[in-house]
Nucleic acid binder design. Structure first.
Lengths: 204, 204
DNA sequence: GCAAAACCTGAGCAAAAGCTCATAATAGTG
DNA sequence: CACTATTATGAGCTTTTGCTCAGGTTTTGC
């Protein structure tokens, strides 16, 4: 392929509704194709085909393939920010209730397309700026959970930082897996056990 | 690229030592290149270059790119099988000791090249047969852990199957992460917390 | 209704990557 | 040493794929 990343800025800015629609069709198709075939095998032609749009149209709205993935990631992060603090901030109740809220939050955040998220995080070649955003986003969440734990009287662990890190990651990954693979056991059972594990850990 | 997977059988069978050596050089180089650049960007030419071997030689021992990854995976699985039961079978001691052994085992199993393992599992396009092998291998391990838990008097969980599944996966994934990313905190601290989490969970 | 702007199309170009094959070099054998 | 089997080489063929551009269609503004 020709050297990627030649253009960096977006192309045309949609001015008509149908253009906005086309853009959305492309993004939806891209999400579908990427999560189905992976980033490398998700060709731009395949995306255009899936979107029922000509390849030319695709390149009117996105300077290159990377930009499409980047846009998908930005959208995901934005949506995450939207309902971020809601459930967690000042969430009261027993430790178990807090943990359960945490798990539910993670599940909700991955409901749309877990495969895609995985690909975005693991296969995408992003700019340093975007990578920075991702990292900061993760760190922010860990910090948020840390504060939550610090405030709860029932939490007894040696090191709050490590604990927050550990449980955020554990919940995240198990959620990934739960959503991604056709699970053998029931979802509720798994959620209960996960909540139990984290809760008992935090209780000391 | 030309349609992959045209040949399925291996090519030449090495009859001289130097051939065996070349084959090994290729595999070693492939492991290096794949874990460095990912599967898609790990080109066969790059592998050959890294192995200081001509591209022609590479294709004398491997029918196509996929076969190289497949061979790497087979080798990994075989090596895993080798020291599988050793530490775990009939491992005595407190629950915490058992769990710690479990964690150490996972760490050891990923020590060689965690990046590569990730790529093999997540980016590789394997035959159904090979996928079957991977799945069976995982299920076997879960079953093994399940038995271990069943035997220990201090284990109190609602559902042994789910518990075994949960902790195998959790330990696995956290190990992945620990090994793959330049960790912020110390390794020991993280291991201790992970062990604590699992132990407290199992204790009920 | 009409011109301009916005939008869409898809054949095809150029680079990249998988892979082949004719030929050369090396190792084994008597 | 001579002869054969095995192994190694790398220029280059072929396919794939990211992406362009010349030209057509639709929408908007007047």
């Amino acid at each position: 392929m020709p050297s990627s990343n030649r253009h960096v800025e977006p192309r045309r800015k949609p001015r008509q509704v149908r253009a906005e629609l086309t853009r959305d069709r492309i993004l939806t198709a891209a999400a579908h194709v990427f999560s189905e075939h992976g980033y490398a095998a998700g060709t731009t032609n395949r995306i255009a085909e899936q979107a029922r749009v000509s390849i030319g149209s695709l390149y009117q709205y996105f300077p290159n393939k990377d930009a499409i993935l980047a846009e998908l990631l930005v959208r995901h992060v934005d949506r995450g920010r939207w309902d971020q603090g809601d459930r967690l901030d000042l969430s009261p109740g027993t430790l178990e209730q807090v943990v359960r809220a945490l798990v539910r939050d993670a599940v909700d955040n991955h409901r749309d397309d877990p495969q895609l998220l995985r690909i975005m995080v693991e296969e995408g070649q992003f700019s340093d700026e975007l990578r920075e955003t991702i990292t900061r986003h993760g760190a922010q969440r860990v910090a948020q959970v840390r504060e939550l734990l610090a405030r709860h009287p029932d939490v007894h662990v040696r090191d709050l930082d490590t604990a927050a890190d550990l449980i955020v990651f554990t919940v995240e990954l198990n959620t990934h897996r739960l959503a991604a693979s056709p699970q053998t056991g029931s979802i509720e059972t798994f959620e209960n056990e996960l909540v139990d594990m984290v809760t008992r850990y935090l209780r000391g």
